[in-house]
Amino acid sequence: MINKKPQNVVKLPGNRHTMLTTLRDLAKNSSKVFFSAHAEQQMHDRNITRTQVMECIRIGTVFEEWHQDIHGGWRCTLQHIHAGDDVHVVSALDSDCKFVVIITTF
């Protein structure tokens, strides 16, 4: 049996609850929420509004828990039904946990 330790694993900066709280607190101020070009295009293609995205971040339920992406950042997916639409938002915190980045929506 080979016993290997994982390498290059970055610890979650806080627990899942505190990260979600940080995400929601930052989303109270829309100037701290940035939309990637990909997210903007997906929103346009799927007729998802910024209001729907912001509501999803502020009060949505966790659809996919925090996990590390291939770039080393931490992201989660939230889900919320807004105006009859089932909206999913993949969001991340910047490395200093001072901004929210919207990665994509569906």
Score class of each variant (00 low, 15 high):
68 Q>W: 05
101 V>Y: 11
1 M>T: 13
87 V>N: 01
85 D>Q: 14
75 R>M: 13
68 Q>H: 05
54 M>Q: 06
41 Q>K: 11
101 V>M: 10
39 A>G: 00
4 K>P: 05
41 Q>M: 09
28 K>T: 02
22 T>N: 08
66 W>Y: 09
64 E>N: 08
76 C>F: 07
72 G>S: 09
43 M>I: 04
46 R>M: 01
46 R>Y: 00
87 V>A: 01
93 L>C: 03
60 G>D: 03
15 N>S: 07
45 D>C: 04
36 S>H: 07
59 I>V: 09
6 P>F: 15
18 T>W: 04
78 L>R: 01
92 A>Y: 11
102 I>N: 00
96 D>Y: 09
62 V>K: 05
91 S>K: 12
49 T>G: 00
63 F>E: 14
7 Q>M: 12
76 C>S: 12
6 P>K: 14
37 A>R: 10
66 W>N: 05
101 V>E: 05
91 S>M: 15
67 H>A: 10
96 D>V: 14
63 F>W: 07
97 C>P: 06
84 G>E: 01
3 N>E: 11
45 D>V: 05
62 V>N: 08
60 G>W: 02
78 L>V: 01
20 L>I: 07
11 K>E: 15
89 V>N: 04
49 T>P: 02
62 V>L: 10
71 H>M: 10
74 W>A: 09
97 C>H: 13
67 H>S: 07
97 C>T: 13
37 A>V: 08
100 V>C: 06
54 M>I: 03
31 S>W: 10
96 D>S: 13
28 K>R: 13
77 T>A: 11
90 V>Y: 07
98 K>A: 12
105 T>A: 02
17 H>N: 14
69 D>M: 05
66 W>E: 06
22 T>L: 05
5 K>N: 15
59 I>R: 12
88 H>C: 08
100 V>Q: 00
104 T>V: 04
52 Q>I: 00
2 I>P: 12
16 R>Q: 13
38 H>F: 03
34 F>H: 06
106 F>T: 05
26 L>C: 02
67 H>M: 08
11 K>N: 14
103 I>F: 03
67 H>G: 07
10 V>H: 12
14 G>A: 12
54 M>G: 00
38 H>D: 06
5 K>E: 15
28 K>W: 02
92 A>Q: 15
14 G>D: 06
54 M>P: 00
51 T>F: 04
65 E>Y: 09
79 Q>W: 04
8 N>W: 14
11 K>A: 15
71 H>C: 05
100 V>K: 01
56 C>Q: 01
4 K>E: 15
21 T>Y: 04
21 T>I: 06
91 S>V: 15
71 H>L: 10
8 N>V: 14
27 A>L: 05
28 K>D: 06
99 F>P: 00
102 I>E: 00
47 N>H: 11
9 V>G: 08
64 E>H: 08
13 P>A: 14
44 H>Q: 14
62 V>E: 07
36 S>T: 13
77 T>L: 10
21 T>S: 05
12 L>T: 11
85 D>M: 08
74 W>V: 06
24 R>L: 02
4 K>F: 14
